[in-house]
Design a protein around this nucleic acid. Structure first.
Lengths: 241, 241
DNA sequence: CATGATTTGAAACGCGTGTTTGAAACGAGT
DNA sequence: ACTCGTTTCAAACACGCGTTTCAAATCATG
């Protein structure tokens, strides 16, 4: 066995196993501390204080601070997606508008949850701004699938609104980023909003109205004739015999 | 004279004055380093290396790292606004759609400029995510005026699209944040986009199409009947005799 | 040229960080 | 009870950080 205990073994033994309990407490404390301030601002001493463990335990169980962060990412990223799946409020076969609303809702709930289910989301959004060594894995396993899911919804909406119109990847991405930008704004700018518009920060009370607004704002834009310029294919089609 | 030389005196003497030149070099190097990684990640050693100055010079001219950051903010915040005013592409008397487009364009240009004119913008957007001791001053002198300017444009657009409709502050803010969210997404998420969609990051080539998209996307949404729910005033009016 | 003020520099300090070390405690098996 | 493996602990280490100190260099003035 490698110098660092593998996760399956440790997870299996966590129940009732004091030593595996230390590892689990470190993971959960680390998730909170990383979610609050990001990888760099988080300190092993603060993590160990919250976990009531020795700083050497981090090195024993995870190798180093980097390894701990990777373990946290792997442990909690899927929890966020499981607790708040993008199918939270719509089935995959539902119409695109309902799926869009569900997607927005799920992301907003992940951002609001500052418990263990939301840590993955907070860490993810922190990587947007301040990437670390887990960005590649995170991009591959979380970000791309999430963006592809939203791209599919956007494509579907644009095709409905503009039948026969050839869509480019760039056009789909522009709309996709407009939607994501509206959502992540509430997390990325939360510290600022707390200062300049404290009654507008994302909370339980206003989450659904904000989700509804972002959904309707985006649907209206996508359905409008104005949101797509002249199609390159349309232009080139005029040249075809 | 106070222990820290005041800015007016130093700025006046910067031309041809070797000692004031050190101060100016420190300010410009600091602006770059703060813009790149934020206040916390920036080190006085890196700043002095770039400025070719001694670390004690920071303490002599600015008091400490905090004081340097304040000086940088004051020096460069106005430069960003001067170089890329929100009236960049529209006069204050132009119709609201043109003013919106100009507003979006100005912010995108500030975000793209990684020279001395853009440092203020980069530092500002960094404060959204990771506020420091200048947040209060920044909120008062830069953020609020900027948000109020956009709120006025949004109000104007909503009133045109929904005549007779009573607007709440919350409704205006929802639309305002949707617009800001789409814009700042390109700065806040740049490190991530460089990894998952490198051909979509904000650059000179695609800045105007992105500005146009955000403007049209937002205009379409604002003009749609869907973007505003039932008016509270409308509801209460129905009860009046 | 001398003097005083200003500015810069090298070196060190104190602190907080992540990591390492070696011993102690604990648990399992015989 | 002994032995061995696992886990935890206190303490220390090495490093980088922001800040401070005191001397040297520079500049301005009479």
């Amino acid at each position: 066995m490698s110098a660092v205990r593998n996760q399956t073994q440790a997870a299996d033994e966590a129940i009732g196993d004091p030593s595996a309990q230390t590892r689990q407490r470190l993971l959960e404390a680390a998730a909170q501390v990383f979610a609050e301030g990001g990888f760099r601002a988080a300190t092993v001493r603060e993590i160990c204080k919250r976990a009531q463990a020795n700083v050497a335990a981090i090195h024993y169980h995870f190798g180093d601070k980097d390894g701990l962060y990777v373990a946290v990412f792997r442990e909690f990223a899927s929890r966020a997606q499981t607790r708040y799946p993008i199918t939270l409020a719509a089935a995959p076969t539902d119409p695109a508008p309902a799926r869009l609303r569900s997607f927005v809702l799920a992301l907003l709930y992940r951002m609001l949850d500052d418990g263990v289910h939301g840590c993955g989301g907070a860490i993810l959004l922190r990587e947007f701004v301040e990437p670390t060594h887990v960005l590649d894995e995170m991009a591959r396993t979380v970000v791309r699938p999430m963006m592809d899911a939203l791209r599919a919804i956007v494509r579907s909406l644009l095709e409905e609104a503009h039948p026969g119109r050839t869509l480019t990847g760039a056009e789909i991405d522009l709309h996709t980023f407009s939607i994501i930008g509206q959502v992540v704004f509430y997390k990325h700018s939360r510290p600022l909003l707390l200062r300049v518009s404290p009654d507008r920060v994302l909370e339980k009370d206003n989450l659904e109205p904000i989700a509804e607004h972002i959904t309707q704002f985006s649907l209206a834009a996508i359905r409008s004739r104005r949101s797509l310029g002249a199609s390159p294919a349309h232009k080139s089609r005029s040249k075809r015999p």
